[in-house]
């Protein structure tokens, strides 16, 4: 494909935050000269230490905040030309880290109905979409239950379902599993993989969980508001030094490979981070 879906050019942003009741204000996160592209139907990961500006970047990409400088283009159209702003939110949607603050309605159906009415959808169209979506994503058992009764993971599955309900061209997820345990993280990751397989949308996933990042095709690294690298996912995730530099936890499979290398100078040939891959590698080396 000739044109990328999203083009980010020389993006800059600075903001201020209230830190005590004396109304002291400090400069918070800053984005410096960030440029990158995302292609059609591409799954991109974004990693970086806490406070590196990941959340700010996700808000810029979804036009929740406006950059101080620079441009973002979606299919060649500048973000500033989407007027009013809500027109852009049909094209680009965002899933937040804080699970519960993203809903207004008390359950999925009410919440999604409200949200889709914003975009002028008719009731019939909304009902159709809900039916289709819940069938596709196997969420039928959750959609009528009040959010308060659901686990954080279940709520996050519904938040993702809502985000793709508008059939966005780009789905941005800001650490969607940071507040979840591994059981719920697994459910969310499974859903993301399914969505990417079945839908034509591109996905930008911000995360610091290596296993989750292995869903992606390429990875961008952000440090102190500056893009510091652009890697293919496999190259990045199998490199312990890169993981450490970006303050990610080394998965057990990689730790075992590195330790075995230290002791024997034999490199276990891992193809990815999965346990299967480690077991196979050990078998090949030993047989």
């Amino acid at each position: 494909m000739a044109n990328p879906l999203l083009e980010v050019k020389q993006l800059q942003y600075s903001s201020e935050e209230l830190i005590d009741l004396n109304l002291t204000v400090k400069k918070k996160e800053i984005i410096h000269q960030v440029s990158f592209t995302i292609n059609h139907h591409e799954f991109v990961g974004l990693v970086g230490p806490n406070g590196s500006g990941k959340t700010t970047l996700s808000k810029l990409l979804t036009k929740i905040i406006e950059p101080s400088n620079g441009h973002i283009l979606l299919d060649g159209v500048d973000y500033v030309d989407f007027r009013p702003s809500w027109k852009l939110h049909q094209e680009v949607s965002l899933v937040f880290q804080q699970v519960s603050s993203q809903f207004i309605g008390t359950d999925f159906i009410t919440d999604l109905t409200l949200s889709l009415k914003n975009f002028g959808w008719s009731i019939a169209k909304i009902e159709n979409r809900i039916k289709q979506l819940t069938k596709q994503l196997h969420l039928k058992s959750l959609i009528k239950r009040p959010f308060r009764e659901l686990s954080g993971g279940q709520q996050q599955l519904l938040a993702i379902a809502e985000a793709i309900a508008v059939k966005p061209k780009l789905l941005v997820l800001d650490e969607p599993t940071a507040q979840l345990d591994s059981e719920n993280t697994f459910l969310v990751d499974q859903l993301l993989a399914k969505i990417f397989k079945e839908e034509s949308t591109s996905i930008l996933l911000i995360s610091h969980k290596p296993i989750e990042l292995s869903l992606t095709q390429k990875l961008l690294t952000l440090n102190q508001g500056t893009l510091t690298g652009n890697y293919s996912t496999n190259e990045f995730l199998l490199d312990s030094n890169l993981l450490k530099e970006n303050q990610l936890i080394i998965p057990a499979t990689l730790a075992i490979r590195d330790y075995v290398y230290k002791l024997t100078k034999v490199q276990l040939p891992l193809v990815d981070l999965s346990i299967n891959s480690l077991i196979k590698a050990i078998e090949t080396v030993l047989c």
Partner: peptide, 17 residues
Amino acid sequence: RVADALIAHGYHQDAKL
């Protein structure tokens, strides 16, 4: 955060919700 979520979901004054 609530305000951010509202914007992201496209909530606006004139929508006939």
